[in-house]
Design a binder for these strands. Structure first.
Lengths: 213, 213
DNA sequence: GGTCAATGTAAACGATTGCTGACTTGCAAA
DNA sequence: TTTGCAAGTCAGCAATCGTTTACATTGACC
C-alpha cells in the first residue's frame, strides 16, 4: 500500500475487465465495497462472509488474508466510510451550507453510497475498536454541525448547542434508517431532494439558529 | 390466555417467589420481557435464544414450545410493543400534547421500557410478518403526529404533512438509537427530560406548525 | 391413590458460520 | 526458461445456533 512498494500498484486504472487479473489492491477494494453494502443493509451479524466474498467475486479465504477476520473487515469498512464522509469538499461555514450539504447526504437512492455509509455508522459488531471509530465519527459530525452554527469550543451554552447538533444528527440518521428498504415508509422513502430540503431547513434552523439562544 | 381458560391464570399476582411454580402464562411473559430487551439492544441476529432463556430463567426449548420459533418470539415481542405503545393514555389533540408526549417517550433511561420498545421498531429479522407489523406501527405513529397538527385524511398538502410527520418520527427514533449504550454519544445520552423538551419543541413546531403550510 | 394432560428438562441433531492449512496458479525478475 | 513469491483456490475443521425429540415432574380432577 505504500507508494514505494515494489509491486505494481494500480493507482489510476479503474477498468476491471482488462489487465491485472491478480490484483491484491483491487481485491481489497472489492471486499470493502461489498462489505460496506452488506454490513450497512443487513447489519453485522446477519451478514455472512461467504455472501460478501460472493458479491465481490472473490474467494472467502481472502477476507481473512487481507483483513484478519470478519470484524477486521467491518472495522476497515467503517474506517473508509469515515474517511470518505469526512473528506468534505469544502468547509461548512454557514447554516445555509449545512442545510444544503445535509440535504445532499440524505436524499438520493436509499441504496446510494452516502446513505450506505451513514447506515454503517448505526451498525455495531460489539467490537470495541469499531465502536470507538463509530463514536468518534458521530462526534466529529455533530461538532461540524455546531461549528456551522457559530460554535466555539469552551464557550457558554456549549453543551446545549452540542446537544442540539446531536439532535439534528439524529434526524439525519433516523431519516436514513427509515428510508431503508426493509422499512419502506412512504412517502419518506420515495421523497427526493426537492421534497426534503424544505423540512430539513426548518429542522436545522429551529435547532441551530442563533437568535433564540 | 382467554379469560375463560380452564387453567388457573394468575392475573393480579406479580410476586414470583411464591405460589405457582409451573405457570405457562408467567413463562410466556418472562420470555417476552427478556426477548424484548435482547432484541432491542443487540438486534435480531445477534441475539441468541439461549441468552433470552437464561435471562428469563427458563429452559430454551420453551421458546419453541410457546412461540414456535425464534422469529415467532420476535414477532410476539413486536406485537406486544405495538399494543403497549399504542395504548396511549389519552388522545393527542394539540401540538403541545405531542411535544409533551414525545419528550416523555424519549427521555428516561436508555434501558427503560419505552426506549426499548422504540428501538425494537428499528430492528428487522428479515421476516415478512414482523416487517409488516413494524411498518404499520410506524405509519400509525406518523399519522397520530400529523393528526395532532390538524391533519385530515385526503386533504390538500396531505402528502407534505405526512412527510414532515415522518421526519419528526425520524428525529425521535434517531435520538433513541444514538442514546443507546453501544453508541453512547454525549451529552445526548445523559440528557434528561428537561434538556430535551426545548429542542424537541423547536423541531416539532418547525415541522408541523400550521402557519407556514 | 390413580390418571392424564400440562409444564418443564436434558441432550443431542443437523445446519450454518467463521476460519485455517495445504495446495495451486499466475506474474515477474534472474 | 527457470525460479520465487504473492495471489488465489479448495476442502474441511471446530464451534455455535436454532430446533427437536424423548423423558421427567407437577398438579388438578375422578
Amino acid at each position: 500500500m505504500s507508494p514505494d512498494s515494489p509491486f505494481p500498484v494500480v493507482t489510476d486504472d479503474d477498468s476491471e475487465t482488462t489487465v491485472r487479473s491478480r490484483d491484491a489492491g483491487a481485491t481489497r477494494r472489492h471486499l470493502l465495497t461489498a462489505g460496506r453494502r452488506r454490513f450497512a443493509q443487513d447489519g453485522y451479524s446477519s451478514t455472512k462472509v461467504r455472501d460478501i466474498a460472493s458479491d465481490a467475486g472473490v474467494n472467502v479465504a481472502l477476507i481473512n488474508r487481507y483483513f484478519g477476520s470478519k470484524e477486521g473487515l467491518f472495522e476497515a469498512c467503517l474506517a473508509t466510510a469515515r474517511d470518505e464522509l469526512g473528506r468534505t469538499d469544502d468547509a461548512t461555514s454557514s447554516l445555509g451550507d449545512l442545510v444544503e450539504k445535509t440535504t445532499r447526504q440524505i436524499s438520493g437512492p436509499p441504496s446510494g453510497e452516502r446513505t450506505l455509509m451513514m447506515l454503517l455508522l448505526l451498525r455495531s459488531s460489539g467490537d470495541e475498536g469499531a465502536d470507538r471509530i463509530r463514536r468518534n465519527t458521530l462526534r466529529s459530525f455533530a461538532e461540524q454541525m455546531s461549528a456551522a452554527a457559530g460554535w466555539a469550543p469552551g464557550s457558554a451554552q456549549s453543551d446545549d448547542l452540542m446537544l442540539r447538533a446531536q439532535i439534528a444528527l439524529s434526524t439525519m440518521l433516523g431519516i436514513a434508517l427509515l428510508r431503508a428498504s426493509s422499512t419502506g415508509l412512504e412517502p419518506l422513502t420515495s421523497a427526493g431532494a426537492g421534497d426534503l430540503e424544505g423540512p430539513l431547513r426548518d429542522v436545522i434552523t429551529a435547532l441551530l439558529a442563533p437568535p433564540a439562544g
